[in-house]
Amino acid sequence: MNRDAIVGLVCLVMSAVLYATLGHIEEPRAAAFPRTIIITMGALSALMLLQHLLFPKPQAKQSPFPWIRVGGLFVIIIVYLALLEVVGFYLASFLFFMTVVCIMGFKRLTVKQTVSWVLGSVIFTAILFILFSVLLEVQTPRGLLI
């Protein structure tokens, strides 16, 4: 089974699960539109599954997926989001930026580079702050620091 066939299967299963949850909608008229879409989606997925089962296309080899880099960033972003409402947008963003560049850019870490990163992120958050919080009064998540 090639990749696209699996994708088709996953979409088909997803449609089935969503169809099963339709029951929670009390008003029958409100369920009509989602039902139509889910059925269409299921049909399209089945079509895709069949197409790739019956006529599999040869697929290019993919380079190994950089799990550590992408997964690492994912974790850092989760922490960043969790911190947002605790320490406030500007401080959290500054910390996030420094963490990402220091951990992911470990190989490039020199004093000079770090200084430029600190300066860069300070200027970046300062511009955001002045432009939006001061001039336009756009709200950002508030925390300890502004």
């Binding site: 960043y80 963003s93 996030f96 850019g105 970046f124």
Partner: peptide, 16 residues
């Protein structure tokens, strides 16, 4: 690298 970090910050800011 820096771009990825900055874009994340902008995305969060813009959404919020």
């Amino acid at each position: 690298l820096e771009m990825a970090a900055a874009v994340t910050v902008l995305a969060v800011f813009g959404t919020y």
